[in-house]
Structures are given as structure tokens and as C-alpha cells.
Nucleic acid binder design. Structure first.
Ligand SMILES: [Mn+2]
Length: 789
DNA sequence: GGACTGAGCTT
DNA sequence: AAGCTC
DNA sequence: GTCC
């Protein structure tokens, strides 16, 4: 990798740090687990649905209470006379669930915790449709692959937006870090006559430096004197209270426009200095905590700009609402508030010219090209941001790109002089103390991933309804053979939505948000307008979807087999047991279907862990076992239990295989381990590293009252990790998945590679120290409970 | 048009 | 190599 | 699905 490239990459990261948006806080490692849950429930009637909510809660901890034989799924007939199978317990035994329910409900009311129970919410929200769907029966549609056609406007839009004026950023990017700012042609200098004051007002932070440079390119003047400023640009991690002291130094500050760092960039994108006032935009570009009062004198330029005329060039990625050109019609968009600019006549320079491709050596590696391009276009830059922002707080302290780029000197990471980049850890949404175990004190901290702990983030999220439906839609996509990436995109979009401080009510506004494209923007609009999602309802009415959902929740059953079975006409778990060719693991999955889908209370995770540790200690007292996964992140319940097995002095997993064999044998003999699903390759070469199976907590170790004990099969994963790889292993097995993927993506961008064993590349090789890996990646340390992205 | 994390284990 | 899992 |  060439250093300059790394430099650019580093730049982007910084930017990320300042862009707080990000999609965090929600599913992650557990994402998969929850996904399963939500899939398995799809109330058929609202009445049942209401019961299910209660039931599902109970189910979390007391599967038996409402267990129904997995092999006897309920079925109902829809309006078409078609039989629909569903996995929801048809018999909700209310027998004294009160106590249990109360307990759980209280947790749900506790605050953020609600997020961890989204599956319940989903069910709740989806029942309405299902009901409708059943009543109105829509024959068919069902081809999962079937795609929605884009409304004409969408096409139109993209066509007009794909062109853009050559971005000066290209120039900027190429100049590396040289100071001279090349301004764009006069007419394009949208910030001309405007004086920006930044907070912090320096360019120490690479991200800010880049932003400032861009502002200057477009004619802005960077002033060091607050009193002289016409626009105050605040780093996104700062809240109004943070900057209040600074503002107070200028008596006129209250008359000036206060915007976050994203605003100027958006102006550049739009090629105009628009007013940040609009409610939604205030949420997008405002400073958190800003008093409602005055603030917002119109500093924007009079529409005198060419930008409003010939330069109506939209960024190719996000169109901006054009007040004058209401997007007309189309089937799906009957709303009048949807306004998208559309100036077909505007023919802009081809994008290619922006990338500077001509100069690019054809020999460049694909990755290099990708990066180069990204660095050459402002949009590309934002894009990159969006990509990385998967994990915003990650980059909070990146500093000088140069140092980072060099690969070997990451000292910069440590110095972290950018306090402003530092997420204000101060304000934490304090969670009720119902589960105030000392271990949990901070699990709500996961919200730190979120924007300065502002508004949203709780169930009263202004976009809650929209998120619920999109979540349901995402679940449907996950059932489809080609829905993996669509679901992934939806997940990111939902995360973006979750962070919006105000309700996103139009497609146009939604479209401006990262990770939300035309499709989802339209869906958001549909939800806001109609309260439903037509496609979702149709999907739910597909008689196959419930069967699919049940099948996919079987361990060791994926899309391939699920579809094959459905093609063969199998509809129930009984059908499978009787007619399908099942692998041993699938048999286990079916036999213990309910158990394996039941959440494991934290207390039980601990109890299970203790059982393993106890036996392990007898076999080899020097071996160390650590419970990872969501438990390590502080979760109140987990989908399974993950344990890392290590021992001082070990350098290969092989060193631990003998121990594992004895451990498994012993635990199996005790009756603790009940079955092996995937065992390590015995005696095989390197690589042997894991053992997956099931276990049951012995009644003697049950943390609750004896009479409440029920043997429940749990999934347990044992991981062999030599001491030399503990750091990388901990990161990986602590998750969550989004966090891990972000890190790996980041590593790759830095020319490194991260897997569960080591961070390597560019002469680097670190697997032992978790913190060291963070440092090498230029990522601020994050405690396990802060890794819910 | 391609990427989207990166691997281990089973069949 | 495909399929499933984390 | 979104972004490059
Ligand atoms: Mn696991």
C-alpha cells in the first residue's frame, strides 16, 4: 500500500469520527439470534398477537410454560382457504405468568432495554398487517425474488443526479496535505462572503482540516475571530452546552447560525447554501441541545447563486428537495410533500472526470483504485464515511493521517489530542436499576455509540413506527434467497433512522440520510403516509413464509435446505422428521427447537459458565475460561453461551486440544454436555479451534427456585485460543458483529487484516493484546459493553 | 457491475 | 465446493 | 439495498 493512500484512508476515518450519525445500537452479535426470534413469531390475529407479546416475554425465560410441540405447529386458514403454518404458540398458558411477566415488563419499561426486545415489538407491529393481509388475501405475489419496480421518478432522479460538477475535492484529495487551497470557479463558490468559525477552531483534526479546506475551496473565509463569523460550525460530537462557554464570548453569537459540521458539506453537495432551519434539517444539521429560541437568523445567501439556477446539480448520491419541482406522482408516491429536484436538462460533466481516472495508472490494484476514487470525490468521501460509520465512535481519536499512514507509527493514536473528537462520555442515559448488577452498570452505555446521547435512542424514538415496519420488512428480506444484502442494507438504514432526532416524514428528506436510498426513502414515506407497507403485507400473506421461517430457525438449516424442503411440500417440523433427509444436527435442532430459540438469562449464563469452569479447573487449573459473546458485553440475556478457553504459555490451539478433549468427555459424562454439533478437527493440523454443542444446566446449579427449574437445552460454543491470540479472539468473540465487521473493514482500509486470530499486514502482527490491536487500528479503546453498534 | 468480515467445520 | 454457523 |  502506498503511504499516500493510507493517508487518505486515515483522513476518512477522522471524518467518521466527527460524523456522529451511525448505525449502532441495535442488534449485533445477537442480531442473528434476534433475527431468528422475530422470524418465528408472526401473530395471525391481533387478539392472538396481544397474547403473544406476553407469551414471548415469558418464553424468553420459561420456554416450557408456553411450549408447544415443535412438531405440531399451529395452522390457520387464511381468507384463501390456504393453510398457514405459524410457530406461535397457540396455547398461551397464563398460568401465573404474572410474576414472570411483571419482571420482564419492568425491564422493558426500564428504558433502552426495550431495544433488546425488538422482536416482540416487531411482532406487535406486524400483526396488524398480517390480519389485513389475511382478510384481504392477495393471491400470490410471493415470488421472493420479485422486485419492486422503481417509480419513474426514481429513475428520473438518478438520471439527473448522476451527473455532478467536477468536485474540487478531487483536487483536494490529490494534493494530499498540501496547504494551498484551490478554490473552485467563482460561480461555484457558494460560501463566498461567508465567514466560518469552527469549534474547535483549528485544523488539528484531519477530518476537520478536510472540511475546512473544502469550505475554503468554495469561497468561505475561515475566521479566527468568533465575533467576525457569520456561520459557526460545530463538530458533531459537541452539544450546545459544550460550546456555550465559547459562544458567550461573543455577544452576537446568539444571532448567528449554528450548524454542525455536516451542514457545510451538505451545502457543497447541494451546490447551494440552503437554510438549515427546516425542522428536519435542523435535526440533521443542528447542534444538539441548542435552545429553541432565536438561533437561526437566516444567514443563507440570497438565492442569487447559480447553484439555484444552472448549478442545480445534485450530488449523485442524494438529491435534495427542490421546493419548486414537486415530484409528481407515481403510483407509490402520491404525496405532495415529496419534492425532488429534477432538471433533466442539466447535463453535467461525466463523473469519470471527477475521479481523475485518466491519470490513474492502469496497473493499480483494485483496492487502490477504489480508494483513490473515493478520495477524489467529495461524494465518495461521504460515501466512505457512511461505510465506516457503521462504527462511528471507532475513529474518534484518529489524528494525523500521516502518522497513521506510515503504518508503523501509530503513536499518533495514543496522543489523541483531539478532545473534540472524543465522545463526550459524560452524559449517559442512566438506566433504571432493575437489573442493577454491578456488571450491568454500564450496559446501557451501548448508547454511547449514539449521537451525543441526544433525544432518540429510546422507544419514544420519533421514528419508532417507521423502524418497526422496516424491521419487519427486513425480516421478510432475510427469508428470501436473495435478500441477504437487502436485509443488510435495511439494517443499516434502520440504524440511521434510529438516530434521527426528529421524525422523517418525507422520502426526500429520508433520501438525504446515509444508507437510505430511493427504495427505502419511498418505503419510509409510505409508512408515514399509510401506516403500512404494502410489500410487507403481501409478503406476510405468502403461505410459504411462515413455513420458511420455522425451517430457517432450525439449527443447521439455511436457505438452501429450507427452500428445498418447501419445494418438496414439507410444511411442518413433523413433516421433516418423517420425510426429510436430516443431518444429525438438524435432528437436534428440530428435537429441541423451542429450547434452542429461548433466550438464556444472564444468571443462567453465569451458572453454565461456572459448571464448565469448575470441571476445567479439575482437569487443568492453569487453563482459563472466559465467557464472551453478548454476556461479555453485559447483556441481560443471551442466545447462547460462548466460552474462550486459553492457557498461559500456549501458542497454538493444538496446545489446548488435549485439554478440550478431556473437558468435553468429562462434561459429557456429567450430563452437562448433551450433544456435539461441530467439534474441532481432532488431531488435525492447525486450525482446530472450536467445539459447538449443547448443554443443560443441572438442577443443582439452577440459580432460581427449585420448583422453577426446567432442563433447557442451550447452545454452547467453546473456543480454543492460544495465549498469543487472545486479543484478537476476545475482540471477535465479544462482538457485536457490526463492531467486528467495522474493525475488519477498517483494518483492510489501513492495509491490514484482522481476523479472530491476529491483526496483520504492513509488518504488523498482533494477536495477543486486545488493546494493542485497537491502538494499531487507531481506534479508541472501547469496553465490551460499549461494543453494541 | 461489484463489494458488503473472515473463518471453521460438515457433507 | 457448497452450505451453515459464528 | 446502498454506495462507489
Ligand atoms: Mn455463540
Amino acid at each position: 500500500m502506498d503511504p499516500s493512500l493510507a493517508d487518505k484512508i486515515a483522513f476518512f476515518k477522522r471524518i467518521e469520527a466527527t460524523q456522529n450519525g451511525d448505525e449502532n445500537d441495535d442488534l449485533g452479535a445477537e442480531e442473528q439470534e434476534k433475527r431468528l426470534k422475530s422470524q418465528s413469531f408472526h401473530p395471525i390475529t391481533s387478539r392472538i398477537a396481544s397474547l403473544i407479546n406476553v407469551a414471548s416475554l415469558n418464553r424468553q425465560y420459561y420456554p416450557d410454560v408456553l411450549r408447544r410441540t415443535a412438531s405440531d405447529p399451529n395452522t390457520v386458514t387464511n381468507g384463501n382457504g390456504e393453510t398457514i403454518l405459524f410457530s406461535t404458540p397457540n396455547e398461551i398458558h397464563y398460568t401465573e405468568p404474572s410474576r414472570l411477566t411483571t419482571n420482564l415488563v419492568s425491564e422493558g419499561n426500564g428504558g433502552e432495554y426495550i431495544l433488546t426486545t425488538t422482536p416482540n415489538d416487531n411482532r406487535e407491529s406486524s400483526m396488524g398487517f398480517l390480519q389485513d393481509a389475511m382478510d384481504s388475501v392477495i393471491p400470490e405475489t410471493t415470488n421472493p425474488l420479485r422486485r419492486t419496480t422503481h417509480p419513474p421518478s426514481s429513475l428520473f432522479r438518478s438520471a439527473t443526479t448522476s451527473q455532478a460538477v467536477p468536485s474540487p475535492s478531487a483536487i483536494l484529495a490529490k494534493r494530499k496535505r498540501s496547504k494551498p487551497v484551490k478554490k473552485v470557479p467563482e460561480p461555484q463558490q457558494i460560501f463566498k462572503d461567508l465567514r466560518f468559525y469552527y469549534i474547535p477552531n483549528d485544523d488539528v483534526n484531519p477530518a476537520r482540516r478536510l472540511r475546512i479546506a473544502k469550505a475554503l475551496e468554495y469561497g468561505a473565509t475561515w475566521t479566527q475571530n468568533l465575533a467576525d463569523a457569520t456561520l459557526i460550525v460545530v463538530d458533531e460530537n459537541l452539544t450546545y452546552s459544550d460550546i456555550k462557554p465559547i459562544l458567550d464570548s461573543d455577544p452576537m453569537s446568539s444571532q448567528k447560525t449554528l450548524v454542525n459540521a455536516r451542514y457545510p458539506l451538505e451545502c457543497v453537495t447541494r451546490r447551494e447554501v440552503f437554510s438549515p432551519k427546516l425542522s428536519i434539517e435542523q435535526g440533521l444539521f443542528g447542534v444538539p441541545g441548542i435552545p429553541q429560541k432565536s438561533k437561526e437568523p437566516d444567514v443563507t445567501h440570497p438565492a442569487s447563486h447559480d447553484s439555484n439556477l444552472s448549478l442545480q446539480v445534485k450530488s449523485r448520491r442524494k438529491d435534495l428537495p427542490a421546493p419548486d419541482t414537486p415530484r409528481s406522482t407515481d403510483t407509490s408516491q402520491r404525496s405532495e410533500d415529496i419534492v425532488r429536484s429534477s432538471h433533466p436538462e442539466e447535463v453535467d460533466p461525466p463523473m469519470e472526470t471527477l475521479g481523475g481516472d485518466p491519470k490513474k495508472p492502469p496497473s493499480q490494484s483494485a483496492s487502490q483504485q477504489r480508494t483513490s476514487q473515493a478520495t477524489t470525490h467529495d461524494d465518495a468521501l461521504s460515501q466512505c464515511i457512511g461505510e465506516i460509520r457503521v462504527n462511528p465512535a471507532l475513529y474518534n481519536e484518529l489524528e494525523d493521517d500521516a502518522s497513521v499512514a506510515s503504518g508503523d507509527d501509530y503513536e499518533d493514536v495514543s496522543d489523541v489530542g483531539n478532545t473534540e473528537d472524543e465522545q463526550p462520555r459524560k452524559k449517559k442515559v442512566s438506566r433504571k436499576g432493575f437489573r442493577s448488577d454491578q456488571k450491568n452498570p454500564g450496559w446501557q452505555e451501548k448508547f454511547k455509540c449514539m449521537k451525543g446521547g441526544t433525544v432518540n435512542s429510546k422507544k419514544e424514538n420519533p421514528n419508532a413506527k417507521t423502524m418497526e415496519l422496516l424491521e419487519a420488512w427486513k425480516a421478510e428480506r432475510e427469508l428470501q434467497s436473495d435478500g441477504k444484502w437487502r436485509a443488510h442494507s435495511l439494517r443499516k438504514a434502520i440504524a440511521t433512522l434510529r438516530q434521527q432526532p426528529t421524525k422523517v416524514t418525507t422520502a426526500a428528506k429520508a433520501r438525504l440520510l446515509p444508507n437510505i436510498g430511493d427504495d427505502i426513502a419511498d418505503k419510509i414515506h409510505e409508512i408515514v403516509q399509510t401506516g403500512t407497507l404494502r410489500h410487507l403485507e403481501e409478503a406476510l400473506s405468502n403461505p410459504d413464509r411462515e413455513v420458511l421461517s420455522v425451517f430457517l430457525n432450525i439449527y443447521d438449516v439455511g436457505q438452501s435446505r429450507a427452500y428445498q424442503w418447501i419445494a418438496k411440500g414439507f410444511r411442518t417440523l413433523d413433516d421433516l422428521k418423517a420425510k426429510a433427509e436430516l443431518s444429525a444436527n438438524q435432528r437436534v435442532g428440530i428435537e429441541h427447537y423451542d429450547d434452542l430459540l429461548t433466550r438464556i438469562p444472564r444468571a443462567e449464563v453465569e451458572a453454565l459458565g461456572s459448571c464448565v469452569k469448575k470441571t476445567a479447573k479439575i482437569i487443568d487449573p492453569k487453563v482459563e475460561l472466559i465467557i464472551g459473546g453478548s454476556y461479555r458485553r453485559g447483556a441481560d440475556d443471551s442466545g447462547d453461551i460462548d466460552m474462550i478457553i486459553t492457557k498461559p504459555g500456549t501458542s497454538t490451539t493444538q496446545d489446548l486440544v488435549p485439554f478440550l478433549n478431556r473437558l468435553v468427555d468429562t462434561l459429557t459424562g456429567e450430563g452437562f454436555l448433551t450433544v456435539a454439533l461441530a467439534a474441532h478437527r481432532d488431531g488435525s493440523s492447525i486450525g482446530s479451534s472450536k467445539w459447538h454443542g449443547c448443554c443443560v444446566l443441572p438442577d443443582s446449579a439452577f440459580p432460581g427456585a427449585k420448583e422453577d427449574y426446567r432442563p433447557v437445552w442451550r447452545r454452547i460454543d467453546l473456543l480454543l485460543v492460544p495465549e498469543t491470540e487472545m486479543g484478537a479472539a476476545l475482540i471477535y468473540f465479544t462482538g457485536n458483529d457490526l463492531f467486528n465487521r467495522s474493525l475488519r473493514l477498517l483494518a483492510r482500509k489501513k492495509g491490514l487484516r484482522l481476523n479472530q486470530r491476529v491483526l496483520s499486514g504492513l509488518g504488523v502482527s498482533e494477536g495477543r493484546d486486545e488493546r494493542k490491536i485497537f491502538e494499531l487500528l487507531g481506534v479508541h479503546w472501547r469496553e465490551p459493553h460499549e461494543r453494541w453498534c
